[in-house]
Simulated scan of single mutants.
Amino acid sequence: MDIYTRRGALALSLGSAAFAMGCGSKFVSYRGPEVTRVEIQKSNRAMYLFHHNVLLEPYQVQLGFTAAGPKQFEGDGKTPEGRYHIDRRNPDSAFFLSIGIDYPNAEDRAFAAAAGKPPGGDIFIHGWGDERRGRSSDWTAGCVAVTNREMKLVYAMVRNGTPVDIFA
């Protein structure tokens, strides 16, 4: 059974989970299965939230404006690649809501130091903010973006400490 078939098996579970989508509120409640891993596939602009090996939610994403290759240095406009973790939350983000990814890790810092450059930082999964955007182009400075409506759910579902695997 592939991840998309498993998703159907969870539809009833998620349907009965509480998503309190208040019209004016940017915060919602989630009482469904725990998100144990976030996977981002840069090549197809997709983010998947998993409960172990069961897909809970798929999302289309936008990435850094220079999408090819891993983030290596401050200002390169690239989204990192590798294993990271959610390490912080920003309910007052300029991009609606955001959850932080602990880039740079020790390997990222060592690579940048060897080149004599700063590795950059402040990488988040965040909403679109106040601007209207299309799904067709990458625009962030290295972050992963979803719509504000989607970010409400991501923010509610994903906890600090959750692993984030970012693949080319």
Rank of each mutant, 00 (worst) to 15 (best):
E39G: 01
S29T: 03
V54T: 11
P80C: 03
D108M: 04
I3T: 11
I123C: 07
G22P: 00
G121N: 09
R89Y: 03
V158G: 09
A168C: 08
A9D: 14
S98C: 08
P33H: 00
G75L: 07
G82C: 08
D2Y: 09
Q60I: 06
N53Y: 08
S137V: 14
A106E: 15
S136I: 09
E34W: 02
N105S: 05
G100A: 14
I3E: 14
D122H: 12
G134H: 04
H52L: 11
N148L: 12
I3P: 02
V144R: 10
D92N: 15
L97G: 05
A168I: 07
G69H: 02
F65D: 01
Y48F: 13
I125V: 13
T36R: 00
F95P: 06
G77K: 10
I86V: 15
Y155S: 07
A67T: 07
V154R: 05
Y59F: 12
G134W: 04
L14A: 02
Q60E: 11
R88W: 15
L12V: 07
M157V: 10
N160H: 09
G22F: 01
A110H: 06
A145M: 11
A9E: 15
P91C: 06
R7H: 10
G121Q: 03
T36F: 03
A115P: 02
E150C: 14
E150M: 14
F19Q: 02
T162V: 15
V28A: 05
R133P: 05
E39K: 05
F95R: 10
N90E: 04
A141N: 09
A115V: 01
V35Q: 02
F50C: 01
V164I: 13
F27N: 01
L14Q: 03
K117Q: 14
G15S: 03
L14M: 04
S43I: 03
Q62A: 11
P80T: 02
C23G: 01
T36H: 02
S137A: 13
I101K: 07
G75K: 04
G82Q: 07
R6C: 03
A18V: 10
S25A: 06
F95Q: 11
K152C: 14
P91Q: 10
L55A: 01
R83C: 13
G8R: 06
A112K: 00
E81I: 14
A113H: 00
D130T: 06
A106Y: 02
V164E: 03
I3S: 11
Y103P: 12
P33A: 09
G82Y: 05
K117E: 13
R31W: 02
Y48N: 09
M157W: 07
A145S: 14
K26P: 02
A9H: 11
C143H: 05
R159Y: 00
E107H: 12
V158I: 09
N53A: 10
G24Q: 00
V38G: 02
A168E: 14
G32A: 00
Y4Q: 07
D92W: 11
S93V: 02
S93T: 00
G121Y: 05
A20G: 03
T79M: 11
Y4I: 13
C23W: 12
H52P: 05
P58T: 03
I125P: 04
R135K: 09
F124A: 08
R31N: 15
F27S: 00
R132N: 08
I86D: 08
T66L: 06
H85Q: 14
T36V: 04
A145E: 09
R45E: 02
T162S: 04
A11K: 09
R135D: 12
P118K: 09
I99A: 04
I40K: 00
V54D: 15
A17T: 03
P70R: 15
